[in-house]
């Protein structure tokens, strides 16, 4: 009898999900966009991804060793960080700059704060911003797809073109912009992984179906940008479509804003987080000096997450609101 009764502390119900499994799902979701980036930008895109992944894994291994902590290579999170970082870089970036980005992401942002789950901002996003601020020219060498990337022609991203548009009148710059279908498929200048929106959306839907991410943040994020752009563009739907498909919005909304460690836990918090990201992105795109604001918006909202969690703390079942006098007495 005693053998049949297992007495143990909670939790009693466990799921079979593991960190490795979740990260594997993310990698699978990233594969279509990776394939498309190689199609568009050639072998160099693949090489650059290999460099970021290898340096991220190496940085993780070395920093865990130096800090005398258990090895965490098995959870594949460093691989995911490496791939996402590569997606945020132009395919022409020198390899050593990409490696610096990986080291920043893994060592400075993640391991210095305690490793996986302890980082307070998204590692790949922070690495991108640090590279962007450090090497502004190298980080803006966008090449057009299907050009030989060893002597490629640099091109303006649709975001830079759109930034010059007054009041959402897209037809004024139509000759400089790719068609909407090309935007969806990714035939335009930009970071390696962010150009092909359709591949990113497919990856995002896969993650939502596998219940790896909740759809709340991507939907509120993209939705807020859509509403803001509708207002800014004076109701021009074409302008809204360009804004949604251009830049890093799809990559950021599906893969970076949804990072577990740096996004709120509750649905209410996630809504606040998504709307905040969307608002900051739109404000930077419309009023800012930079053509693109997804990375800064995600970082800024990452930093606000503890406060969002505090504001949206769920009410325990049956709890009664504390009376005001009581609170004052306590303070």
């Amino acid at each position: 009898m005693a053998k049949k009764l297992t007495v143990s502390a909670s939790p009693h119900v466990r799921s079979n999900e593991t960190t490795t499994g979740i990260m594997l799902d993310v990698i699978i979701a990233l594969v279509p966009a990776l394939v498309m980036s190689v199609v568009y930008f050639g072998l160099r895109a693949l090489l650059l991804t290999a460099v970021t992944v290898c340096s991220a894994v190496l940085a993780e291994y070395v920093s865990r060793k130096v800090m005398k902590r258990s090895g965490t290579l098995g959870d594949l999170s460093a691989v995911v960080t490496g791939i996402i970082l590569a997606f945020n870089l132009p395919s022409t970036l020198p390899f050593w700059m990409a490696a610096i980005g990986s080291v920043v992401a893994i060592v400075v942002v993640k391991q210095m704060f305690g490793g996986i789950g302890q980082n307070f901002v998204n590692p790949a996003m922070t690495a991108r911003i640090i590279l962007m601020v450090s090497f502004p020219t190298a980080m803006a060498q966008w090449v057009a797809p299907f050009t030989n990337s060893w002597d490629a022609v640099t091109t303006a991203t649709p975001m830079a073109t759109l930034a010059s548009v007054q009041g959402g009148d897209v037809s004024a710059v139509a000759s400089e912009l790719p068609s909407l279908a090309e935007m969806l498929l990714g035939r335009h200048g930009g970071s390696m992984g962010e150009v092909c929106s359709i591949a990113l959306i497919c990856g995002g839907i896969y993650l939502i179906l596998r219940k790896v991410i909740s759809p709340v943040i991507p939907l509120t994020f993209i939705g807020t940008v859509a509403v803001c752009m509708l207002v800014a563009g004076g109701g021009n739907l074409e302008f809204v479509a360009y804004q949604l498909l251009g830049g890093g919005l799809m990559l950021g909304a599906f893969f970076m804003a949804t990072d577990y460690a740096t996004s709120p836990i509750n649905t209410k918090g996630k809504i606040v987080f998504g709307i905040g990201c969307g608002l900051i992105t739109s404000v930077i795109r419309i009023f800012g000096a930079l053509p693109e604001g997804v990375s800064f918006s995600i970082i800024l909202m990452n930093i606000l997450v503890p406060h969002i969690e505090n504001m949206t703390r769920p009410k325990p079942f049956g709890a009664v609101k504390e009376k005001k006098e009581k609170k004052e007495a306590k303070a």
Binding site: M97, I100, V133, S134, F135, P136
Partner: peptide, 15 residues
């Protein structure tokens, strides 16, 4: 030839 400008800027200083 390749300075990391961020170290001259305030965030690099704090780092």
């Amino acid at each position: 030839e390749n300075p990391m400008l961020i170290f001259i800027l305030p965030p690099g200083g704090f780092f």
